[in-house]
């Protein structure tokens, strides 16, 4: 999946799941999700589940860090990069 495909899906998931739909439209691609505690322990688990079940991306535990989950842009880059990796044996 390309960055353009991934980004809106992640943004929509975060807005609807963690921010009551973000009625004021405050969520941007650079909103600091960790610093503002949008991504706490519970929401992180739900986001990872969403990536796995809906976007079919298994994020390696070594990639679950502050740099990759700082904001929507960094998460989208991570997911896009992981989907670009050819499947084993392909």
């Amino acid at each position: 999946m390309t960055l353009d495909e991934v980004t809106p899906r992640i943004r929509t998931f975060i807005a609807e799941s963690f921010l009551d739909g973000d009625p004021k439209g405050e969520l941007t691609e650079s909103t600091p999700l960790l610093e503002w505690e949008v991504l706490n322990s519970m929401n992180s688990a739900l986001l990872l589940n969403f990536l796995r079940e809906e976007l079919r991306v298994e994020v390696p535990l070594a990639s679950i860090n502050a740099a990759n989950f700082r904001d929507i842009t960094s998460i989208s880059k991570l997911v896009s990069g992981l989907t670009a990796v050819p499947a084993e044996g392909a």
Binding site: L34, E35, L39
Partner: peptide
């Protein structure tokens, strides 16, 4: 180890 990174700090 990184107070600004919340759960991932």
């Amino acid at each position: 180890t990184d107070p600004a990174a919340g759960f991932l700090g």
